[in-house]
Structure formats: structure tokens, C-alpha cells
Nucleic acid binder design. Structure first.
Length: 956
DNA sequence: CGGGAACTTCA
DNA sequence: TTGAAGTTCCC
């Protein structure tokens, strides 16, 4: 190599680690031929070299080699050959000359005094080294104290990166200015001493294979690094300009062994180790190298005094810095969220959220949502839901938001999101803000409230303390209104007999309610209308204008009052057909007129069922009107600006008891709103289990469960995605055919989706339903069957579960059908099979066809298979039912040695099948399992075992 | 300096 | 074959 390897005292000992030296690892140069041949004087840098730790700013540090030093032999540890090249600096010379005073003329750096010095060799006499080692517990009076820890994170660089300068290992408190560095103080000691810094593993009191280097004139000088301290210098050692070189994998062992050897030699004060010691070191190193954490190191500080005879004696117990983590690694690097796909989500959770992140490990990452109060205490936390496969290439996470703790918040709630790495509890910083939005139900309720209460505040008549107990109708004097609301949930008193919400649900009793002419109900309405009348109401069109402008009355109550008046009048004049007809017309007009004028186009029916405080009487009275005038069409078509029918509103607002009445009045259960959601979609989304039941159980309501919303999902899909077993079960029970509907996003059907959720219960539920084959064979947009999807994305348990139910254990599903062939199959079967016209490609391919396909492909494979015959033989054995059964029987027989141990079990235990054997109760299970393992090691093992038992040729 | 990213190897 | 880890390159 080159002579540049020589250094003056400051680095003398380190010369052996020059990074361009030739050694196995490329870092060390234990046997560097160069060092042996060079003479100190050849080093052009010698003179100029300065102590790196001293920031290169110290004058007169380097001197020509001291002849005395040349006599010193041995490398710092055990490299006698290098000794001669170690160039003592002036300091060292002085030291060696016994001029201890001179030593103190060390360098000063920012007020900290320290002095670099060469590495000295332990002499054989130096036997007192072992501090906490070798069973010798030595008491030290001197104490090393870490005054400045190193930074927690630092990029370890490979040797190949060590060209220009990169950052150095700073102190934990380091800023741009001033910078700080790892620093130790020696206490309780008098006299000159040396403080050594070297790189250690974090789990073990053993050196690390990485190199702690100091940059010096194009060279990286490796650890250990020694600094001289003394009383005059305050016993402070500051280690400046260090870097960490990441030893390449292949050199880990060599480097570690070398370091360990060096340390041992140094400690023993001997030049050579016995072969036994070397052997032991080898083994130890092998063990350590195997699972050494390459992304975490720590600094080890030791203190020595140098005896007159040049031996080094430890004077304080070694101390270790905090761990230093490799900034570059996904295991220890910084966590950071770069971007969120959206800043908000529903309090209900389950919204898809994509996080772009810095490199993460999918097996070691969590997404935490949390909320803190003003004191910084966590008041709520939850974790987003995602699978390993949702972590995209270590840089993005597709997850589902967790539901917020309170699903009834009325305004947005700000929370935070952070990443957590469980292995070291590292968090991303800073946390990103995320806002939970109130559910639609609450929002629309609020909207309603604001529009229906706009008048109340101006009214000076809010005499009671009940002003907030009522939202409607405001036309009525406050007192009267309060009266209404107080009894909202039970109107039994008014009806003079028992009344339960169930009566609304039961069609017959509801009929009765509609037809009855309750005096109380009547009275209420009369009161209402009375007010309107005295206020001087007008006819339909002008009504709201008049009231709205003159009295600032609420639109809805105005219209309702008007309608009720007409209704009551019509009802009193029993046989007046003409009045009935005209009343009918008027009511209808009022109804549509109101909707046109109302905020968001909510109809009276919408309004009346969604009062913030449920107002049964009002609702029922309205229902009566609709019923009496036979305005089914009105109810049927009633949609607001969002496309919501009254049933949507009922589901959103959790007014389950209105569902049946509304259905009875003619509302369509399959109405889709602007976002294509049916009421049932909303019920599932909003978690309205009672609504769902009422819907499903409603007699005569023909629900279409195949309708998809604008996310492409049916209610069942939504339930599965949210892992709502009961809901899914109810939906499936209602209409089994709905399970085969593919969603319009990725073409997954219910089974695909359950597989993605890895939800075994759901999978079983779906598999238990009818038309199983269709589901099993249908392919999603990516062309995958549920089983294939499971193999790609789900856990073993799901895969096994599915494999069990596929008629051929999934072999046919394994077959990829090339597009062109698939098209042929589709077209050829299209003539007599209309079902194949499905949105999902190749959805209903017949099993036989797939089977054929598989066979064909397999035949091809066969010819290229160069594997031994045993596998083929076994495959033939398994392919025919009689032979399969025969083999099952044979394998169920006990072994010769042990009557309790069936043959199959023995084979399993001896092979790689062992870990699965708990799955099987007989050989049949194992054979089933093996059927699709053709080509696997397990398969081969099994085949060979059979051959050994003589079963292969026998059955063939 | 500090960092991104390309390239290579591993599992 | 593919995704991740490891290594190198270069702005």
C-alpha cells in the first residue's frame, strides 16, 4: 500500500487500523506489511499531523520520532511488528523520558484540556488489569463519569462511504453552535492518566465489530482511542471527530475476533495467546457475531495509569455510554410520517387512511391515534388497523382509522397520529394532526336543529327553563311546546292506554294508532292550529311567507300546523267527499311546497322523525295525515337534497321505531342516496344494529342486498370490513345470494374480503352459506380466488381453513388461467351458461374445466421436472381415490416399534411436517395437506419416507 | 455535511 | 420472483 500509514504519536497506536490497509475486512491491518516496512520518517504527514481530538489546532504537537520509542514493541495489543513504526509525538517522547510535566502541555480544546497520546503496550508484568473480570473484583477509588453522552442516533457509514467528510459523532446536547462531543471526566484520581474510548456492543461487555474511527489526513484511525488527562487539565477527556464505520457482514467475524484478541492480549499483558485461548476466542466470537446488533453500539470508556515500566494499569471501572443507533436502519432509524392521505375521518372509524412514512419495518410498526389534554396527559388512544401486507415497500401504510371514543361528538375533534416501533418504543415526531368528524347523523341533526330553531332566541317568552328541551314547533307558545316534549317517549297518558314504541313496529298496532282519534292528540293539534289561526294564517303558498316575515316563525311548524288544521277539518266532515279531495290536494301541495323551501329540501316527514328530541306525537300525527290522505307516493319519493329518504334519516338518527311505520307508509327500503348508500348501508355504517334487524325482519320489505354504494360496497361488504359478525350473519341469513356479489372496488366478494380481514369466524360463516362453489371460484379484479388471495395475504390458519373446503384442496384454484384461455372458456360456455356474464371475470368457471386446465399445466411441468421418481410416484398414489384410501389405511397402522404410534405420525415427526402434525388426527389429514405440496421439501421428504417403508412401489 | 437513492445480495 | 436488507454511489 503506501507509506501514508505512518503517524505521529497522536495516532501511532492506531496506525494498525488504517482503513486502506490490507486485511480481510479491509479495515484492520493486523499484519500490515506496510507498517512493517515503513519507517516513521517516511511519513510526510508526520510533522503536520495533529491531534484530531484537539481539533487540529494545536501548535507544536508533533515532533520527530523519539528513538526511545522505537524500542517499544508490540502493537497496542499484540502486533509487535508495528511497534517500530509507532511514532511518538513530542508529548509521548516527553512522557517516555519521564518528563511527566511535559505531558501536561497537551492540547486545549474549547477550554477542555485533554491530550491525545499513543497507545502503549501492556507488558507481561502488568497483571492487575482485570477489573470486573476473571473473577477478580477490584475496588477502584477513581471513577469515570460521562459528562456528555453521545447522540442517540447517528448514521453508520460503510467504508466505501468514508471519502469526504460526513458528520461526526456529537454529544447529545450538541447544536450547530456550539457543538459538543462525547466527554468523560475522571474523578477521585491524582496524577496523569489515560482515558480510552472504544466501541462496544450494547448487550454484551464485548467489543463491537464496527469501527470507531477518527479521521486523520485521509485515513480513518480505528478505536481504541486514548486521551491523556491530568489534574492540570481537569481530568476531562473529550472525544472529537469520531465516526462509526459499519463493518460489512462478511467481515463481522474477522473484525470482532481481532478486537477481542487485541483486548485479551492487552489485558494479559502478553504478546501471544495460547492456542487454547485462541480457540476459545474463536468460539466466543462465533457466538457473538451471529446475533450481534449491527445497528446499535455504545462507547466504552476506560481509565489507565501508565506505570514507570510502561505497563498500563486500570484505575477505574469502565463505563458505557447510552446506545447509539444507526440512523439508516429501519430497525433503529427515525420514524417519521411524511404525509397523510387525508386529515380527517369519521368518528365511526374504519376510514381508509394512507400514511407515507420513512422506511419502516412492516413487522415492527404501529399507527397510534391519541388525544391529550392541556396538561399533556393522554386521554384517549387507539391503534389503526392494518396488516403486514398493507405496509407498502416500507414506505407507506394503508390502514383503517380506529373509531373515536365518543361517537356522538357534535363537532370535529382534533387528535394526533404517530408511528410507534414496538421493539424500542420509538415514536415518530412530530405527531401529525388528525380530525375526527361527527357522523352524518349528528351533522344532519345539527343542521336540522339550526334551521328549525332559528326563531326561538328572539322570542322573549322563553319563560320556562325548558327552552332547550324543545325544537319544534316554535309556532306554539313555549309553554305549549314544552308540554309536547315532556311526554315525547311515552304518549300513553295522552292515549289513555298503554302505548309502547313496539306498537309502532308491529303493523297491526300501528294501524290502530294511525286510525285512532285520540282526544289528547287531537287537543294538541287543535292547540297548535289555534295559534296559527289566531296568527292569521293564509293559504298554502302564502303561508310561510306571511309567517316567515311577519312572525319569523319556523317553516316546518307553520306548514305542519296548516296541514294538521286541514286534516282535522277533513276528518270531522266525515262524508264530505269533495272536502276530502280538496284537502288531499292542499296537503300534498303544502308538503311539496315545504320541501322546496326548506333547508336541504328536507320534507315534513324528514323533519318530523328527526327532531333532536324525539317527538312521537308529532310524528304519528304526521303519519296519520299521510295515511289518511293516502299520500304513499309522497312518502315513497320523499328525498332531500342529499338524496336521503326518510329511512336514511331514521337509520342515521337511530330512530329505529320509525322504520316500520315509514315502510308501511310507502318509503322504499332500497332507495339510494347521493352516495348510493341505501338506508341499510347507513345502518351498517353507523352501527345501528336495531335498525338493521328491523329492516331485515320487516314483513313485505323486499331488500336488495346487492346494491353497492359509491365505495363499491354492499352492506355485507361493509359489515365484513368492519368485522361485524352479527351484522354479517343477519345479512347473509336474509339473502344468501348476496354473499357472491363482488364489490366494485377490487372485485372481491364477501369471502375475499373476510379473507383479507383474516377473520376466521366470518370465513366460516360465509362458507356455511349456500352456493359455495360460486364463491370459492369467483375471482377478484386481480384474478384471484379467495384461496389464492388467502395464500397471498392471510395467515396460515385462514389458508388451511380454505384449503379444507376447496373440492381438490385448492389445487384448481392454484392454477392461474392465462387471459386468452380464460376468454375462450368464457365464450365457449356463454351460449349455454348465462350466469357467466358477471362483472367479475371468470366468476363462474366450472370446476371441471379448471381441473382440466390444471392437469394440462401440470403435464407440462411434469416434463420439465427433473426431480426424483419418488415424488411422481407419490403424486400418482394420491391422485386416485382408491389408492389414496389404501395409503390412508396403511399409514394409520402402528409402527413396528410402537403400537401406539401410527406410521404417519412417525413420518411426520421425523420430517418437516412435524410442526403441522397437531393439525391431523389421522393420516388422511396429512395426505390432504401434502396433496398440494408437490415440489416442496416436505413432499419429497414424505415420498422418500414412504419409499423407505416400501409403500411406494407396492401400491404402484 | 447530510441525505437520497441506486445498485447488489440475501432469504 | 419478490421484498427486504445490505452496500455503494453521488448530489
Amino acid at each position: 500500500m503506501n507509506q501514508q500509514q505512518f503517524f505521529d504519536l497522536d495516532q501511532g497506536k492506531n496506525i494498525s487500523y488504517i482503513n486502506d490497509c490490507s486485511s480481510t475486512s479491509g479495515y484492520s491491518s493486523a499484519n500490515s506489511p506496510i507498517s512493517m516496512t515503513q519507517s516513521p520518517s517516511h511519513s510526510p504527514e508526520t510533522f503536520a499531523l495533529q491531534n484530531e481530538f484537539a481539533n487540529l489546532n494545536l501548535p507544536a504537537m508533533s515532533n520527530s520520532p523519539s528513538p526511545q520509542l522505537q524500542q517499544l514493541r508490540g502493537s497496542p495489543y499484540q502486533q509487535p511488528l508495528i511497534v517500530n513504526q509507532l511514532l511518538p509525538s513530542g508529548n509521548l517522547c516527553m512522557e517516555i523520558d519521564g518528563g511527566s510535566n511535559n505531558i501536561l502541555n497537551g492540547t486545549t480544546n474549547f477550554g477542555n484540556m485533554y491530550m491525545p497520546m499513543d497507545h502503549f503496550y501492556a507488558t507481561p508484568q502488568n497483571v492487575g488489569y482485570a477489573a470486573n473480570d476473571g473473577g477478580v473484583k477490584q475496588e477502584y477509588t477513581a471513577v469515570l463519569h460521562i459528562a456528555e453522552q453521545p447522540v442517540e442516533k447517528f448514521r453508520f457509514r460503510y467504508k466505501s462511504e468514508m471519502h469526504g467528510t460526513h458528520g461526526s459523532l456529537n454529544g447529545i446536547n450538541s447544536k450547530r453552535t456550539p457543538k459538543t462531543f462525547p466527554e468523560v471526566i475522571l474523578r477521585n484520581y491524582n496524577g496523569p492518566a489515560v482515558i480510552r474510548c472504544s466501541l462496544f456492543q450494547t448487550n454484551l461487555d464485548s467489543p463491537h465489530s464496527h469501527q470507531l474511527v477518527v479521521r486523520k489526513d485521509e485515513r480513518d484511525v480505528c478505536d481504541p482511542h486514548d486521551l491523556r488527562v491530568s489534574q492540570e487539565r481537569g481530568y476531562v477527556a473529550q472525544f472529537i471527530n469520531m465516526g462509526i464505520i459499519h463493518t460489512a457482514k462478511k467481515f463481522i467475524f474477522d473484525e470482532l475476533l481481532k478486537k477481542k484478541k487485541d483486548r485479551l492480549v492487552f489485558k494479559m499483558g502478553r504478546r501471544e495467546l495460547s492456542t487454547k485461548q485462541v480457540q476459545e476466542l474463536h468460539q466466543e466470537t462465533e457466538r457473538e457475531a451471529k446475533d450481534m446488533n449491527l445497528n446499535q453500539v455504545r462507547l466504552c470508556f476506560e481509565a489507565f495509569k501508565i506505570e514507570d515500566n510502561q505497563t498500563w494499569t486500570p484505575i477505574a471501572a469502565p463505563v458505557y455510554s447510552n446506545p447509539i443507533n444507526n440512523r439508516k436502519s429501519a430497525q433503529t432509524g427515525e420514524l417519521r410520517i411524511t404525509r397523510l392521505s387525508k386529515p380527517t375521518g369519521s368518528v365511526m372509524g374504519n376510514d381508509e387512511l394512507i400514511l407515507l412514512v420513512e422506511k419502516v419495518s412492516k413487522k415492527n410498526i404501529k399507527v397510534r391515534f391519541f388525544e391529550e389534554n392541556d396538561d399533556g396527559e393522554t386521554v384517549w388512544e387507539a391503534y389503526a388497523k392494518f396488516r403486514e401486507s398493507d405496509v407498502h415497500h416500507q414506505y407507506a401504510i394503508v390502514c383503517q382509522t380506529p373509531p373515536y371514543k365518543d361517537k356522538d361528538v357534535e363537532r370535529e375533534v382534533g387528535v394526533s397520529i404517530e408511528l410507534i416501533r414496538p421493539s424500542d418504543d420509538e415514536r415518530s415526531f412530530p405527531p401529525l394532526p388528525f380530525r375526527y368528524k361527527p357522523r352524518d347523523a349528528i351533522v344532519s341533526r345539527k343542521r336540522r336543529r339550526t334551521c328549525s330553531t332559528l326563531t326561538s332566541s328572539s322570542s322573549g317568552s322563553s319563560s320556562g327553563s325548558l327552552n332547550n328541551s324543545v325544537e319544534l314547533p316554535k309556532t306554539v307558545p313555549q309553554q305549549g311546546v314544552a308540554n309536547v316534549s315532556q311526554h315525547d317517549q311515552t304518549i300513553s297518558q295522552e292515549f289513555g292506554r298503554e302505548f309502547h314504541l313496539e306498537q309502532l313496529i308491529n303493523p297491526e298496532s300501528f294501524r290502530k294508532i294511525l286510525e285512532q282519534d285520540s282526544a289528547e292528540l287531537e287537543k294538541l293539534c287543535v292547540t297548535d292550529i289555534g295559534v296559527l289561526e289566531t296568527d292569521g294564517q293564509q293559504q298554502s303558498e302564502s303561508a310561510d311567507r306571511t309567517h316567515g316575515s311577519r312572525y319569523n316563525h319556523n317553516l316546518t311548524s307553520t306548514y305542519l300546523g296548516e296541514i294538521f288544521k286541514i286534516f282535522d277539518a277533513a276528518r270531522r266532515a266525515v262524508d264530505n267527499k269533495e272536502l276530502y279531495q280538496s284537502s288531499c290536494k292542499k296537503v300534498e301541495n303544502l308538503f311539496t311546497d315545504h320541501a322546496q323551501k326548506n333547508v336541504n329540501n328536507d320534507t315534513l316527514l324528514h323533519e318530523v322523525i328527526s327532531q333532536r328530541k324525539d317527538n312521537l306525537k308529532l310524528a304519528i300525527k304526521t303519519f296519520q295525515v299521510i295515511d289518511y290522505f293516502k299520500l304513499r307516493e309522497l312518502a315513497h319519493t320523499a328525498q332531500n337534497a342529499d338524496g336521503d329518504s326518510c329511512l336514511h334519516i331514521a337509520c342515521q338518527q337511530d330512530r329505529e321505531h320509525y322504520i316500520r311505520p315509514l315502510l308501511g307508509l310507502g318509503c322504499s327500503p332500497n332507495q339510494q342516496n347521493r352516495t348510493d348508500n341505501t338506508p341499510l348501508h347507513l345502518a351498517v355504517k353507523e352501527d345501528r344494529n336495531n335498525c338493521i334487524k328491523l329492516f331485515l325482519d320487516a314483513p313485505g320489505a323486499k331488500l336488495d342486498l346487492s346494491l353497492t354504494n359509491d365505495d363499491g360496497l354492499t352492506p355485507l361488504h361493509m359489515a365484513i370490513r368492519q368485522n361485524k359478525y352479527d351484522v354479517a350473519k343477519n345479512l347473509i341469513n336474509y339473502d344468501r345470494s348476496s354473499i357472491n356479489v363482488a364489490n366494485k372496488t377490487d372485485g372481491n366478494n364477501a369471502l375475499h374480503m373476510a379473507v383479507l380481514e383474516q377473520n376466521v369466524e366470518l370465513i366460516v360463516l360465509i362458507l356455511d352459506a349456500e352456493n359455495r362453489m360460486d364463491i370459492l371460484m369467483s375471482r377478484n379484479s386481480a384474478g384471484l380466488t379467495p384461496l389464492q388471495l388467502a395464500r397471498a395475504k392471510a395467515n396460515d390458519r385462514c389458508v388451511r381453513l380454505l384449503e379444507e373446503v376447496y373440492p381438490d384442496k385448492g389445487e384448481c384454484a392454484m392454477t392461474w388461467i392465462p387471459l386468452n384461455i380464460k376468454e375462450e372458456m368464457d365464450s365457449s360456455s356463454a351460449e349455454d351458461d348465462e350466469e357467466s356474464n358477471s362483472e367479475v371475470p371468470a366468476q363462474s368457471i366450472k370446476t371441471e374445466e379448471i381441473d382440466m386446465e390444471f392437469k394440462t399445466e401440470y403435464a407440462d411441468e411434469d416434463s420439465t421436472m427433473d426431480d426424483s421418481d419418488v415424488e411422481k410416484q407419490l403424486e400418482q398414489l394420491l391422485s386416485s381415490k382408491p389408492r389414496f384410501d389404501k395409503l390412508v389405511a396403511q399409514l394409520n397402522e402402528p409402527t413396528a416399534d410402537n403400537a401406539n404410534l401410527p406410521k404417519w405420525k412417525e413420518i411426520a415427526d421425523k420430517s418437516d411436517l412435524k410442526e403441522f402434525s397437531w393439525l391431523w388426527s389421522s393420516s388422511e389429514g396429512m395426505l390432504n395437506y401434502l396433496q398440494h405440496k408437490l415440489g416442496d421439501k416436505q413432499y419429497k421428504q414424505f415420498a422418500l419416507a414412504l419409499q423407505e417403508l416400501g409403500m411406494l412401489s407396492a401400491s404402484n
